[in-house]
Design a binder for these strands. Structure first.
Lengths: 121, 121
DNA sequence: ACAAGTACTATCATTTAGGATACTGTTGAA
DNA sequence: TTCAACAGTATCCTAAATGATAGTACTTGT
């Protein structure tokens, strides 16, 4: 997913389509959180990627960053009302998946065999 | 967006997050369509990419492909009931975007300056 | 004196999605 | 007879997303 055409559905999609964004929202819906706390919550994310996702979401108006200017640093992330207003959509997606779990085949891979090392001489 | 962790919300997201998938569903909600027709509908898509999106969506159970085995070829794509059942979610996303249009800043680019050609000597 | 926690950024590398272009074989229409 | 339409696939390439790893400056706890 890259550019969105002006289609409103795709606009919304673009805001939550980052690999970790749904989970960031999930944790921030519980309560505000600090950077390292989020990194512990989202097991496996690197600080670089977390930083990017947070910055994008902040630019998109989904969350706000409050820097207390202290030393050692203290920065808190929390959802804006715009961010919180996505909750019904996320819940709808969650319920849809749970309801249709059985009908969704597990697609693992393999479209065309393309640039596949095994295929080359 | 790449792998989904087993989180149902992300499962749903993964099914519709391809660059053209929402629009494919949009057109197929109207009526069944053939490959070249879709390519005309989705202005700008290449046949390779269209082929991929359709194949993924078919593997995901969102649409079905019917090959009439004729010559010249005739193949029709239509939504499955699973695919059609996504409509409320897409509408919810559309309405959310329309309702919040004014609050969503236009994010154009520029996170860190990273591997930027202008920055290099 | 040393380690750990704070919030990151820098640099480099890999992976993935998507695009450009050309091509297939057959048919019916101009 | 040459052309477009049909439904794609093959090959190559670029751009975007994400990951791995290391390091910043400062402070509190042991």
């Amino acid at each position: 997913m890259t550019k969105h055409s002006g289609c409103p559905t795709e606009t919304t999609l673009a805001l939550i389509a980052g690999k970790w964004k749904v989970m960031v929202i999930y944790w921030l819906l519980k309560e505000k959180r600090r950077f390292n706390q989020l990194q512990r919550d989202l097991t496996g994310i690197t600080p670089r990627t977390l930083g990017k996702q947070l910055k994008e979401m902040e630019q998109d108006g989904l969350l706000k960053r409050v820097d207390y200017g202290e030393i050692p640093p203290k920065v808190e992330y929390s959802l804006t009302s715009l961010g919180r207003s996505l909750q019904p959509i996320l819940i709808a997606m969650e319920e849809w998946a749970q309801l249709n779990m059985d009908k969704i085949p597990a697609r693992e891979n393999a479209l065309f065999i393309e640039d596949n090392p095994e295929t080359k001489t």
